[in-house]
Nucleic acid binder design. Structure first.
Lengths: 144, 144
DNA sequence: AATCAAATTTGTAATTATTACAATTATATA
DNA sequence: TATATAATTGTAATAATTACAAATTTGATT
């Protein structure tokens, strides 16, 4: 299981106790850059872990977020998406197909604001919305 | 009804047909800078419009967004928030009390990204999360 | 004013994501 | 091994949102 080594490392790194299920969830996130929802993670795993419960997936993801091991993306009004890439980057979501892509950004672009005021800021997120290449092309086809 | 004049103007400006309900919803947004959810808008209005249906509020808000007359804020994993302030600005949400504040930002901070790639970007949102002054103070009190 | 079509509102039911919770199972430690 | 603690599981509850059909309103045309 070379693949799962990273997952175990990540869990250790953030002080999260190991379990078969948690390793599987983290491993899924580390190998699927699709910013999946909890349900998607569950569907990707329950065949190989037949006893897996959806609640466990929710629990694991919430735990990971609490420890800072993964990021919660609230770009979609339908569900929360998760991302194991914890380096600063922005996200783009297509309003047609709902897919989410990573968008590289310059460091320092996020955290700087004019005045922090009295707010204690712990996270910053930059989200773009619009149409991905495929969906944009298709919609043009409908018009032309 | 001096107050509602702005609401009517806003609806006209964005080519939205008028109705009592739509004017009321827009008026609510223009006078409540709390980034309310659909449910909050409904609760703020149904006493003065006894026949108001929650579906109507949802329909009106979706319509406003489609026409660009209000902005949809997907900062909260629980529900969508709405904002009649369509000038570029960022948002902050307190992770304890869930309140949302406006955060002023420099123009041009949002739309610029390194390379647009093949994505057609139509919106950009900058979200901060953390703890508001009140909640931050309270949590410190618990520790000290 | 009467008629008709189109648009809007309403109320209810359905859907879906997420959480609550209690029972079961696994883990770690004495 | 016994026991306490933590994690998992399954089901039920909650809550936001949407679907949809019936009723109402609006606007245009005569």
């Amino acid at each position: 299981m070379t693949i799962q080594t990273n997952a175990i490392d990540r869990l250790h790194e953030f002080g999260i106790k190991l379990s078969l299920q948690r390793i599987a969830v983290m491993n899924y996130l580390l190998n699927n850059y699709t910013h999946p929802a909890a349900d998607t993670v569950f569907n990707g795993l329950y065949r190989s872990i037949p006893t897996l419960s959806k609640t466990t997936v929710y629990n694991a993801l919430k735990l990971f977020v609490k420890h800072g091991a993964v990021i919660e993306i609230t770009i979609d009004d339908k569900n929360v998406r998760y991302d194991a890439d914890i380096m600063q980057h922005a996200h783009f979501q297509c309003k047609t197909c709902n897919c989410i892509y990573d968008v590289p950004i310059k460091k320092s672009k996020l955290m700087m604001i004019k005045k922090t005021g009295n707010l204690k800021i712990t996270e910053s997120h930059l989200y773009y919305k619009g149409y991905c290449e495929k969906c944009n092309k298709n919609s043009l086809n409908n018009i032309l």
